[in-house]
Design a binder for these strands. Structure first.
Length: 138
DNA sequence: ATTCTGACTTGCT
DNA sequence: AAGCAAGCCAGAA
């Protein structure tokens, strides 16, 4: 279903510039909500409408099953890669991954403004949920 | 309420 | 560098 969380994730992913990428966990952190698995879940079900290849495992590995397609896009966008992706292209063998150390998206101040806006909206919406009792003891 | 299941992470061989 | 075990977070059954 299309919850506020899903919307927030998709909006955020849409901000990631070509040639860069972030890990699922990064998205969750920027969003200030959920964890890597939540983001992964959202991408798996609703990712097709956004640049999904710019979100991947913290290791730099492309999402399972989409390696080939992702690689084509990385080469096309000039995303920094590691390993023998040339072998992968020819034989389908060979390990490679995105070099997140150098290719990780570094949001600009303007980006952070947008990110914060998204995070805040999400915060307000999910605010409707009840807070656990043990969290309220001062 | 409990158990299962992931486009996840991290730490330890 | 690669595989594995645990930890983690939420939604679904």
């Amino acid at each position: 279903m299309r919850t506020e969380y899903v919307e927030a994730v998709l909006e955020l992913v849409a901000l990631i510039p070509a040639g860069t990428a972030v890990a699922y966990g990064d998205v969750a952190e920027l969003l200030g909500s959920g964890g890597p698995r939540q983001v992964g879940s959202v991408m798996s079900h609703h990712g097709s409408s956004v640049p999904w290849w710019r979100v991947l495992k913290s290791s730099g590995d492309a999402p399972p099953g989409l390696e080939h397609e992702a690689l084509a896009l990385y080469l096309q966008e000039g995303t920094p890669l590691l390993g023998r992706y040339d072998d992968f292209l020819r034989t389908g063998e060979g390990r490679w991954r995105v070099d997140l150390a150098s290719g990780r998206w570094a949001p600009t101040d303007a980006d952070f403004d947008r990110i914060d806006a998204i995070a805040e909206r999400l915060e307000r919406e999910s605010h409707k949920l009840s807070v656990p009792d043990d969290e309220m003891t001062v």
